Amino acid sequence: MATRDVAVLQRIRARRREMAHSDPQAIEVQGTKSMTAADAYREDAHTSPAAKQIGFDPEEFGKAVGEAIRNAVEPLHKRIAVLESGGGKKAAGRCGLVFKGAFQRALDYEEGDVVTQNDRVYVAARAVSAGEGLREGMAGWVLMVKGVAQ
């Protein structure tokens, strides 16, 4: 870090300490000017030699950071909403995986149904009609866990 940057940081820290010990709403700066703590911080950021040299605008920087965070978090909010609504496949109150017990060839299974057979746990990757068997690698079923005692 450059010496001038260290000096700027030291001034900012000193000003923050000063603000912490005084009225947070109004402080005296240079003995003549009354301003809020936020105004003092903003003025220091605008008037420091390092900020002037690179054309740094803390308000624009704050807006850009806020927008970047919103853009990064928005897809997560959307995905959470989809998951909370049942993963987009909510049908008749169904949501996520549903344990159905031991596999029975005579039953129909929906996507997301979980069954056991021969110390293994399978999940239906699609709707499976009655009469379709259950073997490892068979279309419609995915092996989840191997070697589970029933």
Results as ranks from 00 to 15, higher is better:
A14P: 14
H46N: 07
A51V: 13
S22R: 15
V98E: 04
V82D: 07
E132L: 07
Y122D: 00
K63A: 06
K90S: 07
H21D: 12
R16C: 10
Q53C: 02
A20D: 15
A20M: 15
A106L: 10
R79A: 02
K63E: 02
S85K: 09
G112D: 00
G131Y: 07
R11S: 03
G31E: 04
I27W: 09
V121Q: 09
M19Y: 12
E67W: 09
E18Q: 07
G55E: 14
G101P: 14
E84V: 11
Q53N: 14
R126W: 03
K90I: 03
L76W: 11
N118A: 12
G96R: 13
S85E: 07
P49C: 01
E28A: 05
H21I: 08
L9E: 05
K33F: 00
L143W: 04
R94T: 02
K33R: 14
D113P: 15
S48C: 15
G112C: 05
V98K: 08
Q104M: 04
G137H: 08
V123E: 01
M138D: 12
D44E: 07
V29K: 00
D5S: 04
A68L: 10
A40L: 03
R70K: 14
V114I: 14
Y122I: 02
E84S: 09
V98Q: 04
V82K: 12
S22P: 15
V148E: 13
H21Y: 10
S34W: 12
R13Y: 09
E111P: 15
G31L: 00
R15L: 11
S129N: 13
A37G: 00
G66Y: 07
H77D: 02
D108V: 08
Q53G: 09
D119A: 06
E59G: 04
K100N: 06
A124N: 01
E60I: 14
K78N: 00
C95D: 05
Q104G: 09
R16Q: 07
E18K: 06
V121G: 07
Q150C: 02
A127C: 01
D119I: 03
L83I: 13
T32R: 10
K100H: 09
G55R: 13
A50H: 15
Y109E: 00
A40Y: 00
L9W: 11
A130E: 05
L107G: 06
